[in-house]
Amino acid sequence: MEKIPMTAAGHVALAAEYKRRTSEDRPQIIQAIAEARAHGDLSENAEYHAAKEQQSLNEGRIQELESILALADVIDLSKLSGNTVKFGATVTLLNEDTEQEKTYQIVGDPEADASAGRISISSPIARALIGKEVGDSIEVAAPGGAHSYEILKIKFV
């Protein structure tokens, strides 16, 4: 399996989620199952089935987090610099169609959250940005049609 690139902040957030799910959520779900079991007939016990479903979802996410954290390649953003876009860069773009500015940080897949301004390194817009410089224009094919962007600023935190 290949390493999963991520920022230190992303790694900390995933590790915190893992800790919460194993030390807080898991015991609460086990308690909910025990309480539901005490109510009797399990075949028609909605609380029991809901708690078991919650347990299954939680355990699945715990396994996913274990895999991600084991394969994590934490990249120290303080050591990055340069004039071209690469992993960890925070890029300010101008949408050439709407004249709207957007700022995105290019991060690893598990920590991506477009609404928070973090886009995945494997997203179409990030792939189009990699290797480009300030002043370059890119075109990104999107479900709603192609969009053109100009790179206004590149910074490394």
Rank of each mutant, 00 (worst) to 15 (best):
E150L: 09
G145N: 05
S137T: 14
E64S: 14
G135V: 09
R26E: 10
A50K: 11
F156W: 08
I138C: 10
G135S: 09
A50E: 14
G108A: 05
V140A: 02
A34G: 10
S115L: 08
D136E: 08
N83M: 12
E99R: 15
R21P: 02
H147D: 01
S67D: 14
A51G: 04
K132N: 06
G88A: 14
V140G: 07
F87E: 01
H147E: 03
A126K: 06
T98Q: 11
I151G: 10
I68Q: 01
A70S: 15
V91M: 12
Q28P: 00
T7C: 04
K102T: 15
E66F: 00
Q105V: 07
S123I: 03
F156G: 05
K132S: 07
T103A: 09
G10L: 08
A36H: 09
S115N: 11
T7P: 06
R37V: 04
S115I: 10
K3N: 08
T98C: 12
T98V: 14
T103P: 02
H49D: 03
G131D: 06
P143G: 11
Q55C: 06
S81P: 04
V12Y: 07
K52H: 10
I151C: 05
R37H: 08
H11T: 00
N58Y: 03
G117F: 06
S23K: 13
L69A: 01
G108R: 00
H49G: 03
S123R: 02
E66W: 00
Y104R: 06
G108D: 04
L57Q: 15
E2R: 13
R61G: 08
I119F: 08
G82W: 12
V157D: 10
I121A: 06
S120N: 00
V12G: 00
I29A: 03
Y104K: 07
P110Y: 02
Y48Q: 10
S43W: 03
E59S: 13
I4H: 01
G82D: 10
G117V: 07
V91W: 08
T22P: 01
G135K: 06
G10H: 05
